[in-house]
């Protein structure tokens, strides 16, 4: 490693740890991993069953991750996308191809600890092969100033009997401006769960469009959104599921807590184009539960402390 890369790597790893990442995985040969700062790949490790190749693009990196057919591992793929400077733009294009029957988990962290004016665009394509299983968990830390624009876009295609679970989490620090656009297509007996958990503060703005298209027979989809908004934060969430296949099942579930002058708008959209499909939704937006609040205050927590516990519970 040259000196600069080494330095960047070390400081990124420090932030990675403090945002909950397991840094040992980044040094172990057992784990497939990739660490990117800005438009530079600082480290990358492929394994027997998981091949990672990268190429530089304008303002970022394009990465292709191929999982061999039938490859199953208990070591999650660790991804770390960071921007250490205060300003800048990062574009990450990823293509994940999971061979038939494979089973792999991804743990990704996106870290912009010093962000004043940062734009992070994520463009992902995920192909989940027949009977394969992919779990993708992404945690963000955007620093404390709110000067972050994050635009994650994912298109996932799940073949027969495959399963794709994704979770997108922003629990600490500011959210900034987040604009999520996820769309999953399911074949016969395929399954998908899309989870997002976001805490918006001050003038954070969160937009999310998440869709699961139940193309195959017996396909099953769940979109689960949990949000807490305080101060002047705003959110607009559209969770959409379309039932096309016979006996396909889709559900949209959104719960949000709002406080202060926050604004929350949730629109679950359920569409069926097949009388044998069933699509349902539930959405609840409200203030912090009064009884929970009083219970915690009766144990000596101040109102702010009690609210924090309740919100972290919702986002867990």
């Amino acid at each position: 490693m040259d000196e600069i890369i080494k330095k960047e790597f070390e400081s990124l790893v420090k932030y990675y740890e403090s945002s909950g990442g397991n840094s040992r995985a980044l040094f172990s040969k057992d784990y497939a991993s990739m660490v990117i700062n800005g438009n530079r790949v600082l480290a990358k490790n492929s394994t027997r069953g998981i091949l990672i190749s990268t190429r530089r693009i304008k303002d970022g990196v394009s990465a292709k991750i191929v999982i061999k057919e039938g490859f199953r591992t208990k070591y999650p793929v660790h991804l770390c996308f960071g921007m250490l400077p205060r300003e800048g733009k990062q574009r990450i294009k990823t293509k994940i191809i999971a061979g038939a029957g494979s089973d792999v988990k991804f743990v990704a962290h996106c870290i912009f600890p010093n962000a004043q004016k940062i734009e992070h665009v994520m463009d992902a394509e995920v192909f989940v092969g027949k009977d394969a299983k992919i779990e993708y968990e992404e945690t963000h830390y955007h620093g404390k100033s709110g000067g972050v624009i994050v635009i994650p876009k994912t298109r996932a295609y799940v073949e027969e009997g495959g399963e794709y679970t994704s979770s997108f989490v922003v629990k600490s620090g500011r959210a900034g401006l987040i604009n999520i656009d996820f769309e999953v297509h399911l074949s016969n007996r395929a399954k998908s769960t899309l989870i997002s958990k976001i805490y918006g503060k001050e003038d954070d703005e969160i937009r999310a469009r998440e869709s699961i298209i139940l193309e195959g027979d017996y396909s099953v989809g769940l979109i689960k959104t949990r949000m807490a908004l305080k101060d002047r934060a705003r959110s607009r969430v559209i969770g959409k599921t379309i039932g096309l296949g016979n006996y396909s099942r889709g559900h949209v579930d959104c719960t949000e807590i709002i406080m202060d002058d926050a604004y929350a708008e949730a629109s679950p959209v359920v569409i069926a184009k097949n009388p044998r499909a069933k699509v349902t939704h539930e959405a609840a937006i409200g203030s912090v539960d009064k009884k929970q609040l009083i219970t915690l205050m009766a144990r000596g927590l101040s109102e702010e402390q009690a609210i924090e516990i309740i919100v972290q519970g919702l986002l867990k």
Partner: peptide, 14 residues
């Protein structure tokens, strides 16, 4: 001073 409610609250996620 503390109080245990007749019907205690539930805390999803805790």
């Amino acid at each position: 001073i503390t109080l245990a409610f007749q019907e205690p609250a539930r805390f999803e996620g805790l």
